[in-house]
Design a protein around this nucleic acid. Structure first.
Lengths: 186, 186
DNA sequence: GCGCGAAGTTATTGAGTACTAACTTACTGC
DNA sequence: GCAGTAAGTTAGTACTCAATAACTTCGCGC
């Protein structure tokens, strides 16, 4: 397997591991084991653990941005907004994408790596701009949209069951998505 | 200083340290240093690191629940809801409370301690019930309220500046709160 | 002033972890 | 068939960290 292909599979493994146990909680050995490669070899493919985390973060934002772009393609206004919401609820059925997002939010806050924090902020505001420009939504609509999304993230992260009262304010599609997320194997 | 008093100051230090660097990212030595006590002594006051984290989590939820209760005291309906929102935006000017919340959300997801995850879920739904029972808000209002809160949490955790477009959908009080949070010393 | 319990210390251990150095294996062009 | 390079390994280092054991100091009743 070429180095580039290996790098790709390492990124995928890093997304999973960092999503589940966070930056400090995951060892490079855990990532290597998931890839099926010796731990020192990771340092041939990436300069260090931080670079691995950064690559996973990039991948996570790439997928989300692409999901939004594709969903809104050919649509505009309220239709585009709704399509993006739907697409997002599909995206985060991949629990690792969901949890890596949450991990990135806390990673941005701990000031150990200001450059990474800056990167995460930039990519987040990029998402904001994508939704705004593709839908022309008002400031209040945007806050509502992202607030909705962040609450879904939180409830799923917490593992609040789909039947719980906390989900009552959501439509059926969201509840269904929640039930499916929990059905995933770990 | 009595053991109980020490325990109290240890909890306060644990809240700060765990908030800033998460469970795996904080050493018991960092907590001990903040308390001004030797590291092994922590294990006389608490059975282990997990117990420290759990105590910090309890403290965090206690403060939030109490904030809600006090704010809504004597009020009802929309007035109570507004008062709770305002009180919350004051509470999270303490960046450590805010960040510990975020840390708890990711801690609940990583399945290394199911009992802790269960505890966090229980306390979260308790908050939900407090807001619902004190305000009589509809399911949609509740989702809006908590979604709003989770978005604020996220923006603050990310460190999105108060002047950024992401804050445009919020009222002046929220933006002011954001500016103040960032002015805090670390 | 002396025993005693509570508050706290220093020294240590054993496990884990990021990263390096040096070696091996397999494929490719000539 | 052989040199060279790319992919990958094993062995090891320096360090951190949670937890334990054994020791010290201090205040108080008598």
């Amino acid at each position: 397997m070429s180095a580039d292909e290996r790098r790709e599979s390492v990124i995928r493994a890093a997304v999973v591991e960092f999503a589940r146990t966070g930056y400090h909680g995951t060892s490079t050995e855990a990532i290597a084991r998931r890839v099926g490669v010796s731990q020192p070899y990771l340092f041939r493919l990436f300069p260090g653990k931080q670079a691995l985390f950064r690559a996973a973060a990039e991948r996570c934002f790439d997928r989300t941005a692409e999901t939004f772009e594709v969903a809104a393609d050919g649509l505009s206004g309220a239709e585009a907004l709704e399509a993006m919401g739907e697409a997002y609820s599909l995206l985060i059925r991949d629990r690792d994408v969901l949890m890596l997002q949450m991990q990135l939010y806390v990673a941005a806050a701990s000031a150990e790596d200001p450059e990474l924090a800056d990167f995460i902020r930039r990519r987040w505001t990029e998402l904001w701009d994508i939704v705004r420009s593709r839908t022309g939504a008002s400031d209040e609509e945007l806050t509502g949209f992202f607030g909705h999304g962040m609450l879904i993230n939180t409830l799923l992260a917490l593992g609040i069951p789909a039947e719980d009262r906390c989900w009552d304010g959501f439509d059926g599609a969201c509840k269904l998505a929640a039930a499916e997320v929990y059905a995933q194997r770990r």
